[in-house]
Design a protein around this nucleic acid. Sequence first.
DNA 1: TGAACAGATTAGATTATATCTAATATGAAA
DNA 2: TTTCATATTAGATATAATCTAATCTGTTCA
Lengths: 141, 141
Amino acid sequence: MQPDAIKRCLAGSGLRSTPQRYAVMAFLMKQAGHPTAVEIFEAVNRVDPRSSRATIYNNLRDLVHAGLVREVAVEGRAARFDAKGMRHHHFICDRCGNVEDVDWYDVPRPAAASLGRRVLRECELIFRGLCTRCAPRRVSR
Amino acid sequence: MQPDAIKRCLAGSGLRSTPQRYAVMAFLMKQAGHPTAVEIFEAVNRVDPRSSRATIYNNLRDLVHAGLVREVAVEGRAARFDAKGMRHHHFICDRCGNVEDVDWYDVPRPAAASLGRRVLRECELIFRGLCTRCAPRRVSR
DNA sequence: TGAACAGATTAGATTATATCTAATATGAAA
DNA sequence: TTTCATATTAGATATAATCTAATCTGTTCA
């Protein structure tokens, strides 16, 4: 069990462990950034068991549905994915579309009255602006 | 809201007032929901000056860039748009993808340390779950 | 008022992203 | 092992958005 945390993780969510699915999960867990489906496709195929595009998308859908992976929609660009490790918020760059993590802190929930009959599953806080690479260097003044 | 207000609004953002652009803005301002680009395309063309798909997308891009309209990316679905009227948060339905408004309340900003060199423009709070139509009806009353 | 022209519009092609199909293969339970 | 529900595959298809290059138009200013 301890030798393979990923397999346990998949089994615990009722997902069969296949080389392709395992590779996607392993890649996302060791990855610091927030790759797109195509980037994941290329990365896992660079190693070995060749995964088709459909398999990557299928597995990402299943992993998101199982709550192991988070999908971040970015307007005008491909969605990005990350393994749900430590809780965190997301910063999306206006300029390059990159997604970066921001330390997690608690967010106040809305008043019951403004939710009405809606069933709240989660609150997501997204920051927008210029990411580390796109922000202008500070100029002494 | 008088028709002139829209023209002033556009001019104030350095945007020329054209029948097509005006129609997009007018539609979004009188619209309670969060239509997709295609829905806007169909709605404004149902009235009169025929707008091409490209014009709808161009104008939406310009209006978003001018800060008059907000774009909401929804994973796996088309983006949705609304005129920035009163500040509000968004609720995205897990099941149908609909976007609904939630009363606005202030969100605490992250600590400067966790932003680093990043330039923060805005904080966006997104709620997820089941929308009014998709939530199961309450049994007891 | 009416040129002039920067900016806007157009139809349709193109690109980008994601899903579907149906034939085949495989993990894991028994 | 055998079994079979589940997963994978290549390629086609669907959907969302952008691009192209020809044409048109709002606004400015003489």
